[in-house]
Simulated scan of single mutants.
Amino acid sequence: MKERATVVCWQRGRILLVERGRARWSLPGGTIRRAEAPADAALRELNEETTLEGCELGYLFQFGGLNKRHHVFFSVLHDDARPVPSNEILRCRWFRPQKVSTLITSVPTREIVNLLFGHDVQRPAPVRA
């Protein structure tokens, strides 16, 4: 099973999604390298995809399917944090959580956002390990 680090970035009532192509939105993140800690992978991928640095992460949960296991992290970004698409990313955009269900997204993105926010659009509290 492939291991993936996924980051839910929160700023002013919105979450950050990135577009990798094919007009499909997803949460920032990517594959965890061999011997890399999930939190390190989350920070690396977030920086590679959005140029965001120095973000504090809280671990939320694992989300898994048949082929991938997502280690999901949460970060509250400062109001002045501005993601810029980098690497394989075409666009970065902020969305209200309830809007995600109307977008073309990856299945894990839609399910992770639903697990976190459901009908409640309040910011979840990160779980500290």
Rank of each mutant, 00 (worst) to 15 (best):
105 T>A: 05
78 H>P: 04
63 F>T: 00
127 V>T: 12
72 V>D: 01
81 A>T: 01
121 V>C: 12
24 R>K: 15
26 S>N: 04
76 V>F: 08
20 R>S: 14
27 L>Y: 02
74 F>V: 02
123 R>A: 08
103 L>R: 09
50 T>A: 05
71 H>I: 02
85 P>L: 02
23 A>Q: 14
13 G>R: 10
30 G>N: 04
33 R>I: 03
92 C>H: 00
97 P>C: 05
96 R>G: 04
35 A>N: 13
59 Y>A: 04
98 Q>D: 15
4 R>P: 00
29 G>K: 09
121 V>Y: 07
73 F>P: 03
59 Y>H: 07
84 V>N: 01
2 K>C: 14
1 M>C: 03
61 F>S: 06
40 D>Y: 01
71 H>C: 08
96 R>S: 06
87 N>L: 06
41 A>T: 00
126 P>E: 02
68 K>V: 15
75 S>A: 14
117 F>L: 09
79 D>L: 10
12 R>C: 08
3 E>S: 10
73 F>A: 04
78 H>Q: 14
123 R>N: 03
106 S>L: 15
102 T>G: 12
115 L>S: 06
47 N>K: 12
35 A>D: 13
62 Q>T: 14
19 E>A: 15
66 L>N: 00
53 E>W: 07
110 R>S: 13
9 C>L: 10
46 L>E: 03
30 G>Q: 01
122 Q>L: 15
47 N>F: 14
54 G>H: 05
74 F>W: 12
112 I>V: 06
2 K>L: 15
122 Q>H: 12
46 L>T: 07
40 D>G: 06
63 F>E: 11
58 G>C: 02
28 P>T: 03
93 R>S: 11
126 P>R: 11
1 M>R: 14
103 L>Y: 07
118 G>N: 11
79 D>K: 06
115 L>G: 01
123 R>M: 13
116 L>N: 04
